[in-house]
Design a protein around this nucleic acid. Sequence first.
DNA 1: AATTGTATCAAACGAACGTTTGAATTGCTT
DNA 2: AAGCAATTCAAACGTTCGTTTGATACAATT
Lengths: 206, 206
Amino acid sequence: MSTLSTKERILNTTEQLIADKGFSGISIRKISHAAQTNLAAINYHFGNKQQLINAVLERRLNNLFDIRQKMLNDLNQGKKKACVLEQVLHAFIAPALYMINDKNQGGKTFMLVLARAYAEQGEYLHQLMTTRYTNTIKKFADAIHRSVPHLDKETVFWRFHFIIGSLTYAMSDFGASSISKQMSESDYFNRSVDELIQFAVQALQA
Amino acid sequence: MSTLSTKERILNTTEQLIADKGFSGISIRKISHAAQTNLAAINYHFGNKQQLINAVLERRLNNLFDIRQKMLNDLNQGKKKACVLEQVLHAFIAPALYMINDKNQGGKTFMLVLARAYAEQGEYLHQLMTTRYTNTIKKFADAIHRSVPHLDKETVFWRFHFIIGSLTYAMSDFGASSISKQMSESDYFNRSVDELIQFAVQALQA
DNA sequence: AATTGTATCAAACGAACGTTTGAATTGCTT
DNA sequence: AAGCAATTCAAACGTTCGTTTGATACAATT
């Protein structure tokens, strides 16, 4: 427990509090108390509140997009032309949903954080997508288009957009886990990945 | 302008401010000032801040679900057995997106409010869906299932869920309107409705 | 005209907020 | 052991927040 540095403890605690209470439900006072540190420690380590929030988001997003990029690269390694739609979508969707099972990191917690961030930190996320992660996103859009060449580029763009929406919404529900309590949690995850990918495949194959 | 009652002015102003700044960006001080009324008037008319927010959400949602229910009823009137998937989805999706063009009401504004509410007022929305609007939602799920009887009920449930996610995400983007500025606004809306419905149809027809 | 209920207003309340400051404490290097 | 930088801490700053209060203005009814 206490092997974690103060900085890491603040990051983890902030992530958990955002997941529980939302961005509007946190304060650096609550965070510092829950992280068992001092009020000023947050400003010392992160500057101010917004920079702390940014750090929480970027820590996980960097990891998520790294994994996505890696999985897409592995797909393209064998054949450069042919792209199986199902595999491309899997490389995009699965890392997001499987972060949840990563017990070492608070993956499930971050799913809720990310879903909330789409509404409450939209500007900052949009900025990230159009700068740091834009290359990866473009590569995925290209790969999808290559796998369904009969669709025009604009339609692919729209549907990829809708799929991202479905994924975001699904992630949000995982945190809330408001439906179908009859399954075990891991069954629910696996089923979600399959259903979401099948959903996306069906939506893209006209 | 001033023909509106103070109560209506407060509702409209609150809606606009939430769309602009998010739920965490509003205060009853800012609202009362922007609505050109007094601080205490809000508590007088609505009780407290949360009840004001609830009133903003319910005013539009009641209208939205009324229209959805009506359109579904019109579909079922002719034939009771056969349901065309495309029409059912249209009855669900179109009212949400066409609220945007309703200039009399601040439809477009509310789209942003609703998208934000999914993340920031999740508990209250979920409560609304499982109480006041549950009948309408069930009827849509049934109608969809009847139109794709070859899919098992659980798959339909999942995919309907994903479609709601896509719709929510799309609505959120309308407010932000961050993409494809080349089209006119109404063209963009109409294109969105068509693309989203086609997307949903494709996703549901295995 | 007097009365009654509705609506608006300025003022004040305590609480919680983000940030800053300067002193204490720790951990590492010399 | 001394010195130095990195870290932690208690305390305070000014601001903003939601809510309450009691007085005032308005409208409708008797």
